[in-house]
Amino acid sequence: MIRFVLCFLTMASLGLASSDFPVFEAGKAPPGGVYDPLEWLEIGKREELEESHRRALAKWGVRIFVVILPEKPALGAEVFAKKIGRNWGGSETWGVLLHVVGNSDSPWCAAERGENLRWAKQEEFERALESAMSRAHREPGQDLSVMVGARELTDELGFLGIISNRRNQMLGRAREEGVQRVGEKLAKQTLVKRAWMIGAPLALILGIVATILLRTRSRGRMTGFVFPETAPRRRFHGPWSGGGDVLATFSDENSDEGSWRS
């Protein structure tokens, strides 16, 4: 009976392992971001990776996970890595490096842009992953491939984060400038409007005043000047005039004899 139970437990554990490891799929992420149940990685290298993951999280907000499996998942390495990433990293920026011990195609990777890399372009993101993996595959040993792949993935995602951040800042600045420009434009329009609101009635009033003044003046001119009445200095029995003493003679065009008074 005991043998049967032990046999069942062994079979069950093997069954779990071959059914794409639902245990860690649903569970919490490993503390240092390294899942290595086989303890395939040397302790020093594991610590190194864990330290690098902590730094990436602190510096760039990127979560990196390294998963070491004894065999390739039935779902396919990349799909499986993506699944794990979503479970552990959620909607944040994350990257998963999946290594199957003894598999020459290893490692694989999957990543999510998340909020941090919102402004990174999709092509840049894909190129970054490819570049990390190509560098990892170039390494001669499997453990080196994992170490280099994890480091490169961290760096690439971090770098993209910086670029994205810069873009974000630039966009923010541009937005601010745009807002400022729009504000200035609005202020200018308001100023023009105000100037119009004040200037137009003022000009109208001035125009009216000027028109009134001009009309008054022209009316004054039209009415003309009225001389005061005087008591006539009647003389020589003349009822209307006492004569004048102005006489000019024009015997020739230029002579100064033109005018004389006796």
């Binding site: 001389f227 005087t230 200095r233 009647r234 006492g242 004048g244 102005v246 006489l247 000019a248 008074r261």
Partner: peptide, 17 residues
Amino acid sequence: GRVSVTPGYAIEPFLNE
């Protein structure tokens, strides 16, 4: 070729010959 100016009593005081 002579010209003279003769004003009436009312306007006369305001004119300068």
